[in-house]
Computed example of a mutant assay.
Amino acid sequence: LRLMMGMLAPQDFVSVFTGDSSLHKRPMGRVIKPLSRMGANIVGRAGNTKLPITVVPAGKKLQGFTYDMPVASAQVKSAILLAGLFAEGTTTVVEPYQSRNHTELMLESFGVKLDYEGTAISIQAQDKLTAPEKIVVPGDISSAAFWLVAASVIPDSELLLKNVGINPTRTGILDVLNDMGADITLTNERSSGSEPVADILVRSASLHGTSFGADIMPRLVDEIPAITVAAMFAEGETVITGAGELRVKETDRIQAISDQFNKLCECITATEDGLIIRGGSQNVWRQGTCFSYDDHRIAMTLAIAGMAGNGVEIEQPDCVAISYPSFYEEMAGLY
Results as ranks from 00 to 15, higher is better:
58 A>N: 15
75 Q>A: 03
215 D>L: 10
284 V>N: 14
150 A>H: 04
203 R>G: 06
255 Q>A: 14
80 I>F: 05
106 M>T: 04
166 I>F: 04
141 I>A: 04
71 V>D: 10
209 G>L: 09
265 C>I: 11
286 R>F: 06
224 I>L: 01
239 V>Y: 01
79 A>V: 03
288 G>N: 03
234 A>Q: 08
70 P>C: 13
42 I>E: 11
306 G>F: 00
13 F>Y: 11
25 K>D: 12
305 A>D: 03
274 G>W: 06
183 D>K: 15
127 D>V: 02
43 V>M: 13
331 M>R: 12
191 S>K: 15
225 P>L: 05
287 Q>P: 06
328 Y>I: 06
333 G>E: 12
94 V>I: 15
330 E>T: 11
304 I>H: 10
205 A>N: 08
263 K>G: 02
9 A>C: 14
101 N>P: 00
301 T>C: 01
324 Y>R: 11
76 V>G: 12
99 S>N: 14
170 R>F: 06
173 I>W: 00
227 I>L: 14
241 T>M: 08
16 V>M: 10
279 G>F: 03
53 I>E: 08
235 E>H: 15
2 R>D: 00
276 I>D: 03
335 Y>D: 06
304 I>G: 00
26 R>W: 10
42 I>F: 13
173 I>E: 11
263 K>W: 05
230 A>N: 08
67 Y>V: 10
71 V>H: 12
4 M>H: 15
233 F>E: 07
109 S>W: 10
322 I>E: 15
216 I>Q: 02
201 L>Q: 15
137 V>Y: 00
289 T>H: 04
38 M>D: 12
318 D>C: 02
18 T>M: 11
71 V>G: 07
230 A>H: 02
108 E>L: 07
148 L>T: 04
118 G>M: 05
6 G>A: 11
178 N>G: 05
233 F>S: 11
156 D>Q: 15
179 D>Y: 02
115 D>K: 15
218 P>V: 13
146 F>L: 06
98 Q>E: 03
211 S>G: 12
205 A>V: 13
100 R>N: 02
71 V>C: 02
276 I>R: 02
285 W>D: 10
269 T>V: 11
243 A>E: 01
151 A>S: 15
248 V>Y: 10
76 V>Y: 06
